[in-house]
């Protein structure tokens, strides 16, 4: 596993503009779906993790809007949209 503190520090270098509602949500009842488990390893920002009571939780802060979880897990388990205009990550180099 990646060092989560180091990953957070790396994400801390990026510019994020706060938005309203989370733009990606786990569909209700899908928290324990095996397809969602995959996101834990695959998310470049490490935003998916295992909850204490089992199942997967998503913390949207630091989302790079890369799209990997949508491709990997699919839209059956994720409600996926981009953040509202003018919010979210703003790459300075890209």
């Amino acid at each position: 596993m990646s060092d989560s503190t180091a990953l957070k520090a790396k994400l801390g270098l990026d510019i994020f503009k706060p938005g309203g509602e989370p733009h990606i949500k786990i569909k209700p009842g899908m928290e324990k779906d095996p397809r969602l488990q995959q996101a834990i390893n695959i998310c470049p920002a490490g935003l998916y993790s295992t909850a204490d009571k089992g199942g997967v939780v998503l913390n949207i802060d630091g989302c790079l809007e890369c799209g990997t979880c949508r491709i990997a897990c699919g839209t059956d388990v994720l409600e996926w949209s981009y953040p509202e205009g003018g919010t979210g990550v703003q790459f300075r180099f890209g």
């Binding site: 990646s2 790396k10 995959q38 834990i40 390893n41 695959i42 998310c43 490490g46 990997t68 990997a72």
Partner: peptide, 15 residues
């Protein structure tokens, strides 16, 4: 992405 999925719990992408 498929390769990552098949790798299961191998090192995660950021690692």
């Amino acid at each position: 992405v498929q390769s990552l999925l098949e790798a299961g719990s191998a090192p995660d992408a950021p690692a």
